[in-house]
């Protein structure tokens, strides 16, 4: 950790340049990452409330905070804090209590490596993209813990579905990222972004972009791939027995996941903090990055409003029979072109 921080200071992080004290820098970075990881999901959650409502000819929240219900999710948070914290009698209390944290912390840690400009980031790991994809996979362990510890068959089925879904979709997602990494020649998030100065990788890797988005939906268990929480079948999957703040943590991890995967997709395929050609210089990097993350998050919500849920076997078949062979082929083509061109 310390070594990584020192390495970061050599690459020219703006906070490192501003302050000399190691501990001050560390505290600032932690505060900024935590602040981002806890507020960006709220913004996405509010956006989902409103977009989903308007796609159904409704208005969505209108009262909290007086102006178009902007404070709805804050009010929800206050409500969750007040709720009784119920732990089922048959549940394993330690695992049950730990599960929401295990689900949420990886997504917070993921915000460490997301660059908002070539100097605005908490860490510039050399293995940035490897780190992000590895750490998101930990989150599902939290879901599995929740399902197992709840002592509830619906929870267990939901947790196992989530695990099966993760295994099936982690592969095409990583393979899609591998194609980009091969083209960029680096694993660093900043490095991949900087490699897209001439053109964004969505132009050269459109198939990988599509597969990455589909796989992110599945990893986030978002509709149309929300079988692990399919309310009509298994109530709310692994979260069935959760109440109050613990439940809120699971919800927060879902929305933090949307932000995280949108950010990764933006870095890999949409040029991260780089603006589009010609008009890119008009706005600073953080605004471009936020706009791209917002657009991708909107797209994820849009899909939720449009498509019905798939069946469990359809989901598995789609990944193993279609996406994984497609991505292997994509890697072969990318490698061949990389050598030839």
């Amino acid at each position: 950790m310390i070594a990584a921080l020192l390495a970061a200071s050599e690459t020219g992080n703006f906070i490192n340049d501003l302050f000399d004290s190691f501990w001050l820098v560390l505290a600032l970075k932690v505060a900024m990452v935590l602040g981002l990881a806890l507020t960006a999901p709220l913004a996405v959650g509010y956006m989902e409330h409103k977009v989903l409502a308007h796609m159904q000819h409704r208005l969505g929240p209108m009262y909290a905070g007086r102006f178009h219900g902007w404070a709805q999710l804050i009010a929800d948070g206050v409500k969750f804090i007040q709720k009784e914290d119920v732990i089922p009698k048959a549940a394993d209390p330690w695992v049950f209590t730990l599960a929401p944290a295990v689900a949420l912390v990886p997504y917070i840690a993921l915000f460490l490596v997301i660059p908002f400009d070539n100097t605005i980031f908490a860490e510039n790991l050399d293995v940035g993209i490897f780190y992000t994809l590895a750490i998101t996979a930990i989150s599902v362990i939290g879901v599995l813990m929740a399902g197992w510890a709840s002592a509830n068959k619906f929870s267990l089925i939901g947790a196992l579905r989530a695990a099966a879904q993760l295994i099936a979709y982690e592969l095409p997602m990583i393979l899609a990222a591998v194609a980009v990494v091969m083209q960029a020649g680096t694993l660093s998030m900043v490095g991949i972004t900087e490699a897209q100065h001439s053109h964004w990788y969505v132009l050269t890797q459109p198939v990988a972009f599509g597969v990455f988005l589909i796989a992110s939906l599945a990893e986030l268990t978002r509709p149309p791939f929300d079988m692990p929480v399919a309310d009509s079948e298994i109530i709310f999957g692994a979260y069935t027995e959760y109440t109050g703040l613990k439940f809120a943590f699971f919800l927060l991890s879902e929305y933090a996941g949307i932000v995280a995967f949108s950010a990764i997709a933006a870095v890999l395929f949409l040029g991260g903090y780089l603006g589009p050609p010609f008009i890119g210089g008009l706005l600073p990097g953080p605004i471009w990055m936020s706009a791209k993350v917002g657009a991708l998050a909107f797209f994820i919500v849009w899909l939720r409003a449009t498509y019905p849920r798939l069946r469990e076997d359809q989901l598995q078949r789609f990944s193993w029979v279609v996406l994984i062979p497609l991505m292997l082929l994509n890697i072969m083509v990318t490698a061949t072109l990389k050598v030839l061109v």
Binding site: V51, A53, H54, M55, H57, L59, W302, T306
Partner: peptide, 17 residues
């Protein structure tokens, strides 16, 4: 399908408050 939901997003909602 995406087009239909987008069209509805852009049209006026019918909620009576």
């Amino acid at each position: 399908g995406l087009g239909i939901t987008l069209k509805h997003l852009l049209s006026r909602s019918i909620t009576q408050q």
